Each structure stands twice: as structure tokens, then as C-alpha cells.
Amino acid sequence: MNRYRVDLHIHTVLSPCAELEMSPDAIIKRAKEEKMDVIGIADHNSTRQSEVVKQLGGEFGITVLCGAEINTKEEVHCLVFFENNEKLNEFQVYLDEHLPRVKNKPELFGDQVWVDRDNNILGVEEKLLIVALDVSMDEVAAKVNEMEGLFIPAHADKTRFSVTSQLGFLLPDIPVSGIEVSANVKMKEFELKHPWVKNYSVIGSSDAHMLNQIGSSYTSMLLEKPSFSEIKMALKGEAGRKVVGIIKNDRLSTD
């Protein structure tokens, strides 16, 4: 077993709130500079940019998990990832069916384009990606679980768009793979206020919208190799795989 550096919350140029500098090649270059072993592409309510990043990552020795940061009916943000393109594309159909037809206003919210490896525009998303889906958190979790994906409530400590801000707590019957906290979390204080979080593996991510944020907060995981299946095992604490801790500013966070 070896320790790997894992940042599972990175936005690309497709997310309207991300900077235009967040192109696939720039993300991989920055991740390499930050010595990331695994990154997760999590654009708002869309998976369309993740495959190109995965292809480039493979050329530079970086494992890329493909998925999205979905916004449920309750306005709870959750990270979802899938092991292969077939399941990823199936979930994109699901997103297209449940994303309301609210037209994006680029001048107000930002551009929503996805690009190829050479940064040529492949398509423009006309529907605004940051709105809530018309399905609930438990419905999306059940769908992802049925597809054998990862389902992780995002930045659970935040006062907006989190399971704690919107629902107060996580219902124990919702099948989640783990819980993500933000880079600014005070873990002891958060656990004291929300003791249920101790029942899950907790990860930290950068939630990068700009290149210099990649790897600013990440998770150290003990894995046999950097892969989707190994990370899934680590989140469950199976066969010696595990989440070691959250790293901020290159130090293990103990607060």
C-alpha cells in the first residue's frame, strides 16, 4: 500500500463560476505541478468536460475520476463519480432530463463551454448549470448507488448549498460514499455540532475554480494503486485501504 494525494473537487471551463483558464490541459499541468495522483472533475450538473481531462491525465500519470457536482432539489451540492464512460454518459442523460430549462445568461453567470484537448470549443450548454435539479437528494443518491458510482455530499460544513445548511443533518438511510468538507473547516467544531459525520469517511478537496487553487486542500489515501475501485474501497475502509486524513498547506489537518 502507498499514500496517494487525492483532490476530488475541481471545476473546468464548463462551470459558469470557473475561470476560463480552467482548460483540460492547464488543469492537468497544474495538478502535475502540485503532485496530485488523483483528481476529480466535478462541473456543475454536467459531465461533458471530464472525459477529455481523463484522457490527458492518463498521458501525464494522473488518474482522473469523471463526474459532476450536482445540485439537488433541496439545493444540496453533492459530488458524483462513475467508473467508466458508459455509466458516465448514462448519468449525463439523467442530468439532461432533470435540469430545468433555465437559459444561461453568459454576461451575468459566465460562459458554459466544453473544449477538446487543444481548447477548441466542442459545444455550448444553453441551460444554466448552477440551478437545482428537479429531483431530491435521496433520489439522486439512489440512482448513483444503482449505477455503482460514488455519491459524496459536498462541502458539508458550509453555510450554503450543503447538507447541513439545507437539511440540518444527513438522513442515515441515504447511501453516501463519504462526506466532503471545505478547505476552511474546523473539524473538531464541526464534529461537535454534527456528530453523525463520524459515521462516514471524511475527505477534503480544493473545490478549485482557479488553477492556483488545485491541491490547496486534498485527501491522503492509502491505496494499492490510484484507481476508482481503490478509492471506493478506501472510502469504505476495506482491505487495508483507507482515508488517512485531510491535507491543507501540505500539513495533516488536526483541527
Rank of each mutant, 00 (worst) to 15 (best):
M1H: 04
M1Y: 13
V6C: 04
V6M: 09
V6D: 06
D7Y: 05
H9N: 05
H9Q: 02
H11W: 05
S15V: 04
C17N: 11
M22F: 00
M22A: 03
I28K: 04
I41E: 12
A42P: 02
A42S: 15
D43H: 03
D43Y: 12
H44V: 02
N45Y: 05
G57V: 00
G58P: 10
T63C: 13
T63S: 14
E69W: 04
K73E: 14
C78K: 02
E86S: 03
K87E: 01
Q92Y: 03
Q92G: 00
P106L: 09
E107A: 11
R117N: 15
N119G: 08
N119Y: 10
I121N: 10
L122P: 09
L122G: 10
K127E: 04
I130K: 04
A132I: 00
L133E: 13
V135H: 08
M137H: 08
N145G: 07
M147K: 15
E148K: 03
F151M: 11
D157I: 09
S162G: 01
T164L: 08
L170K: 10
P172F: 09
S177M: 12
I179L: 13
V181M: 09
N184W: 00
M187N: 12
F190H: 13
W196G: 03
V197W: 00
Y200S: 15
S205D: 12
S205Q: 11
S206E: 14
N212D: 15
G215Y: 00
S217M: 04
S220H: 14
M221W: 01
M221K: 06
E224H: 10
P226H: 13
S227F: 11
S227R: 07
S229T: 02
S229W: 06
E230Q: 14
I231T: 04
A234P: 09
E238D: 07
E238W: 02
G240S: 15
K242F: 10
T254H: 12
T254S: 02
D255N: 11
